Computed example of a mutant assay.
Amino acid sequence: MASLPAESRWSIKSLSDDDAGSALAFLRRDPLINVYLISRLLEERFASATQMVEVRYHRDVILVASLATNIVLAADPAAAPETTDAAASVIAERILTRMLSVRAIISPAHLVDSLWKRLHSRLDAPTVVRMNQPIYAIRGRLDFPDLKEVRYSTVRDLDVLVPACGAMHSEEVGIDPLERDASGYRERIRELVDKKRSLIRTHGGRIVAKCEYSAVTPEAVQLMGVWTDPQYRRRGFGRDLLREVCGHLARKGKSVTLFVNDFNRPAIALYESLGFKRIGVNRALIW
C-alpha cells in the first residue's frame, strides 16, 4: 500500500458517545445519501456498538465509516478528491489490520473505487460486483394513499415471508441466503418484523409484493428488498405497494430512498414513473 501523504496530519478513531453529535452533524450534510449511517448512530445505545470510525485531516472530519462486516462509507461532499482518496487509505489500513472479515462494501461509487484499489491485492475477489446502483429518493407524496391493502408483517407471516425474502435475495444478488444460513436469515427477518420494518401486500392468501426498511431516521426511510412475486408481475401490485408505503411515510414527514441495480430496467421505470428522482449512485462488492 502506498504511504499516506503527510501522515502526521491524519487521524482515525473509533466513535465514542462524545463523538456521536459531531459525526451526526457531518452525516446530515447529506441526509438522504447517508441515511444508513445516521440510522446506525441513532439506534445504538452506545456509539461504540456501531463499529464506526471517523477520519480527520488536522481537526476536520473527512470521512465517517461503519467497519462492521458490511462496510459503508460517507465522505465530506465538499472535500477535494485527493483528500477523500487519502482518507480512504487510512480506512484501508484499519481494515487490513483488524481481525474481522469483510462481507460487503456498499457505498457511493467513487468511495468504493478509492477503497478497493487499496484492498484488492490483499483480499479475495468479491463474489458479486454491482458496478452501478442508482440511488433514488421521493419526498412529500401526500397525494399517494396511506396503508390500505399493504400492511406491516407479523410473526404469523414468517413462514411465507422468509421464503419470499430469500427469493428476492437470490434474484438480486445471486446468492441463496437460506442455503448459506437458514436459521440466521430467518432470525434477521424476524428482527425486521419485530421492529415494524417489513411490509407486505397479500392476494389470495399469499405474499405478492413486499419491502423492508433498512434504515430509519427522522428525515428519511431507506427501502430494501422491494419485490413482486414473478407470477404476479405486471399486475400493479408492486406499484400499489410503493404508492401506499411512500404515502404512509410522507404522512410521517419522511422522504423515501432506495437503490437499485442499473440493469433492472423494469424496476427503474417503475420508480421513475412514481416520481422517484436519482440523487446518486452506489457500488457494491459482496463476498
Rank of each mutant, 00 (worst) to 15 (best):
A74D: 02
D76Y: 02
A79M: 08
T83Q: 14
T84I: 06
A86G: 07
A87C: 01
S89A: 14
S89P: 10
V90I: 15
L96A: 04
T97G: 15
T97Q: 08
M99I: 11
L100I: 08
S101H: 15
A104T: 10
I105P: 00
I106R: 03
I106Q: 03
I106L: 07
S107V: 04
A109N: 13
A109G: 05
A109H: 11
H110N: 10
L111K: 00
V112S: 00
D113Q: 14
L115K: 00
K117Y: 12
S121H: 14
D124E: 04
V129S: 13
R130S: 14
Q133K: 04
I135S: 06
Y136F: 13
Y136A: 04
Y136I: 07
R139F: 00
F144V: 13
D146Y: 07
D146F: 09
K148Q: 15
R151K: 15
Y152C: 01
Y152T: 02
Y152R: 00
S153H: 06
R156I: 09
D157T: 03
D157W: 07
L158R: 06
L158N: 15
D159I: 02
V160Y: 00
P163D: 12
P163Q: 13
A167D: 12
H169K: 09
S170I: 10
V173C: 12
V173L: 10
G174Y: 11
L178H: 09
E179H: 15
E179V: 11
E179Q: 13
R180N: 10
R180V: 13
A182Q: 08
S183A: 14
Y185F: 11
Y185G: 06
R186V: 02
E187Q: 10
R188M: 15
R188K: 12
R188W: 09
R190E: 13
V193G: 02
D194N: 06
K195A: 10
R197W: 03
R197G: 03
S198H: 00
S198V: 00
R201G: 03
R201K: 14
T202G: 12
G204W: 11
G204I: 14
A209R: 02
